[in-house]
Amino acid sequence: MVTGRALVLAPPAVGPLLMLQAPLSFWGGVDAATGRISDPRHPDFGRSITGVVLALPSAIGSSSSSAIMLELLREGTAPVALLMGTADAILALGVVVGRELDQDAIPVLEVPWPLLAAVPSGTQVRVSGATVSEVTP
């Protein structure tokens, strides 16, 4: 179990963990219509982030990434939760604005990265409050 800091509080979420191998700018890096990583230079190029618990070491790039996060929520292509190694108001802000526009919020947490990095990608995890725990089958 990993405990972090809740940036956006939302109802608990369960999904497979997707640990990104490199920082990602959502603007220019994620296609909101498909939910896939669209930056050909990113090591996870082509992967879908829809329905996963998405873990990012850090977000980079344009502050327009807030707008892409909002589009993911509107299109139904968003992850079910975001876990970030470094707190960043940009993606979380897209979720906060989404909530104002009647979209369901997803939990956004800042987590201690070395602890989270020990959990393999694909593991089913539950994000609740400020904690991330493995779901035992």
Partner: peptide, 17 residues
């Protein structure tokens, strides 16, 4: 303000709200 550039309909909805 930089938010006037269109990235998707959500940005329009926010400004109109």
């Amino acid at each position: 303000v930089d938010g006037c550039l269109y990235h998707g309909d959500g940005g329009v909805e926010f400004a109109e709200r």
